[in-house]
């Protein structure tokens, strides 16, 4: 009887866990990867450690984490978003275009002294002239033209670039601000690419 009582929480946990691929799925992958990978250049072994967002999305993939867990992780991501200190959201669209084109940054083969690119074109259509764009993300062509430049729209877009996982927890898009991939000025420049009327995105 006592044993049965002790087992109760375990038994109760079974249906909950069955929604995911298994609680130890991440631990299993991580353990194997730790013995199968080695630090190289700027890519140290700590990159194999998952934060809450990564762990949740991996555990339930290809499905989605349950609402409550997802909401908590999204709130944490939202809390990490920082607006530009000077209140100015828009930089130089030409520099933004260069950042959107640049695919290097954070790979062990990259120079850690050089700023990372955003590699936006890997997944998005942006400038009308650039035909080599990917389709993992939606087209952003005519982005500013269609949406205007209200403060609300600028803040929303800034936040999405800064941390898309505050909006869609398991989005494919990197958290450019929260994870320190792009700095504040670079995000301003990418914002200008999206919103400036002279940018090829809006022409």
């Amino acid at each position: 009887m006592r044993i049965l009582i002790r087992l109760m929480p375990l038994l109760a946990a079974v249906p909950l866990l069955s929604a995911a691929a298994g609680p130890d799925r991440n631990a299993q992958a991580r353990a194997a990867m730790q013995s199968s990978f080695k630090a190289h250049g700027q890519a140290g072994m700590e990159r194999l450690d998952q934060d809450a967002t990564q762990a949740l999305c991996s555990r339930y993939a290809p499905g989605m984490p349950p609402g409550e867990d997802a909401a908590r992780a999204m709130a944490a991501n939202r809390a990490s978003i920082r607006y530009p200190a000077d209140g100015n959201f828009l930089g130089d669209w030409k520099r933004g275009e260069a950042i959107a084109q640049e695919g290097t940054g954070k790979q062990y083969s990259d120079d850690p002294g050089k700023p990372s690119g955003g590699n936006c074109y890997a997944c998005h259509r942006l400038s009308g002239d650039e035909v080599a764009y990917g389709t993992i993300g939606p087209s952003l062509y005519q982005f500013g033209k269609n949406r205007g430049r209200s403060e609300e729209m600028l803040k929303l877009t800034w936040s999405m670039i800064y941390d898309m996982k505050a909006f869609t927890l398991c989005s494919a898009m990197p958290r450019f601000g929260s994870r320190g991939i792009l700095d504040e000025q670079q995000i301003k420049d990418v914002m200008a690419l999206l919103f400036d009327p002279d940018s090829p995105v809006n022409r």
């Binding site: 890519a43 990564q54 991996s58 993939a61 954070k106 494919a172 990197p174």
Partner: peptide, 22 residues
């Protein structure tokens, strides 16, 4: 194990194999 690795998101960009290949 291969399946677990395929869906394992990590690193600066949160990528797993599945991010691009699912």
């Amino acid at each position: 194990l291969g399946e677990a690795i395929f869906y394992y998101r990590a690193g600066t960009h949160d990528f797993s194999c599945a991010t691009c290949h699912s």
